[in-house]
Nucleic acid binder design. Sequence first.
DNA 1: CTGAAAGCGCTAACAC
DNA 2: GTGTTAGCGCTTTCAG
Lengths: 330, 330
Amino acid sequence: MTINDVAQAAGVSVSTVSKVVNARYGVAPSTMERVLQVIAELGYETSLVASSLRSSRTNIIGILVAEFEPFALELLNGISATLRGTQYDLMAYAGNLAPGGRAGWEHRSLSRLGGTLIDGAIIVTPTVEIPHSSVPVIAIDPHAGTSGPAAIDVDNFGGAKTATEHLISLGHRRIGHIKGRSDLKSAHLRESGYRQALQDAGISYDPQLVHDGDYQRDLAAIAATDLLTLPQPPTAIFAANDLSALSAIETAKSLGLNVPNDLSVIGFDDIPEAAQSKPTLSTVRQPMHEMGATAVTLLLSMLAGEEVTQPAQMPASLIPRESTATAPQP
Amino acid sequence: MTINDVAQAAGVSVSTVSKVVNARYGVAPSTMERVLQVIAELGYETSLVASSLRSSRTNIIGILVAEFEPFALELLNGISATLRGTQYDLMAYAGNLAPGGRAGWEHRSLSRLGGTLIDGAIIVTPTVEIPHSSVPVIAIDPHAGTSGPAAIDVDNFGGAKTATEHLISLGHRRIGHIKGRSDLKSAHLRESGYRQALQDAGISYDPQLVHDGDYQRDLAAIAATDLLTLPQPPTAIFAANDLSALSAIETAKSLGLNVPNDLSVIGFDDIPEAAQSKPTLSTVRQPMHEMGATAVTLLLSMLAGEEVTQPAQMPASLIPRESTATAPQP
DNA sequence: CTGAAAGCGCTAACAC
DNA sequence: GTGTTAGCGCTTTCAG
């Protein structure tokens, strides 16, 4: 089913069909009607690939992710809702699923889709500097880099501080931290927030209590094990994201510890799983829908020709649930 | 950054560059090295659009949805995880966001992406018959149509029956039902399951207690209002999906009713929001991750040339939470 | 081993 | 009002 088939069936040239499909002027009403009829009969739809190769607008916004994990999916939810009723369709691309192709998915995806397939892009959690691109780009939860496109993130520092203060207010003094990915800005800010809260409370920082979790389940489990098998284990853990926190709870359970009675755990993000775990996970909420919505709004104004460079920061809020409780009495 | 730029910079022809990029035989090692070097320097990536127009394989699997709502997103989660480590990337396309373009998004998206951009497609909740396509297609939660591609769904009948029986076991006798979209097979099966459970319990079917909710928030709210303002209102409602159930709870609250003391509500799907509402929603769980995983497995074997036509049905399971309770004593 | 050239489906000048 | 034609960036014969 190509434009050629339609042209042939309608007895006109391909350019006439193209004009009809794209509602261009200069087609006789009778011709138009006939072509439309043939299109309907044949069920013809213009190929996105071919037309985007030739023309510059596609009316498609691309969301570029490494893979579809809970954070990206929640963002997608907000983005989709915000785009509803606009002229744009949404294409989400996970470009880091194939084995081996680890690094640089941001650049690869942007180069492969940008300029032709998509009119603009929202890149989720890029781990490297975003290259100059031929289309407008917004980054969510960006890399530690200095320059780069307009970016959106949550108040990572303030959120982490709040989480740690929550633990402190429950009477905890030995508070461990499972760090995030060191190539992400958010991980550093969250660690800083943790340290600031300790300092404000007059608790001295103990490097033994901080381990690397890389925002991942497996590494967080190792970090949690290391933390909990210390001669003097912490009574509470602030994990840099919910995935790590959930993993830490699992680990604690397997070590025979009760959460929250023996150990309090708090995460960061408020992914859907946080509310469904047992015990439900106390955490700091990133307003993911709003972040997605803001990204879209910014991108649309860039698409409309406006200059947008200043970063947007969203507030983080404490969501106390069951996994945190008063510190055990020694 | 096109293949021409690379060719020029490396002092070779475009076809040589293409051979290097695609690891074809017949390039001298020295040439290859030089080209590779230039590619790295320039940060060139082959354009997905151009290459997919010319060659038939793209190693991309497409997920076609009307929009990114909770059900589709959960599916995406399972699909993404299953595809990890395979040679395929994932492209999810929401083709029904633009206003006006309501009907036939399935066909439109499939025609526009199929054959060129994607090697195979998974269509989520299609509302019309899926046309014969140039690429392998799997449907999840399919349309009521008779023919069509290989399909995956949950045991809608059994799940609805279980939900209704749960209500009956709590002592409810007047049980309302908010129906789903009549153009979806799942809606009909869920209504049948509801009626079967009533019949098995010797409760006669009252058409007054069944209203249309179309799987949507707004229409479900109207249906709930109608139900609850009946002279003899039901003491329990089985809503055809969680979105409707959540909406019914809102409505009940606004009418001054307490859920679950005055009214029990149970949904279907177990979307993430179900566990986070107040009260938390009792529901019947669709194993969405598993459904996504199964879809991928089936599609991959079709891509490998195998014939797959038989539908797969997944089990539904009751998840009792706070929104259902013993029937109020008259 | 390398390059010239055709063509994938479509759009946009430009002729007629 | 309509058709012819030249590419968009790439892959793939097919000569050299």
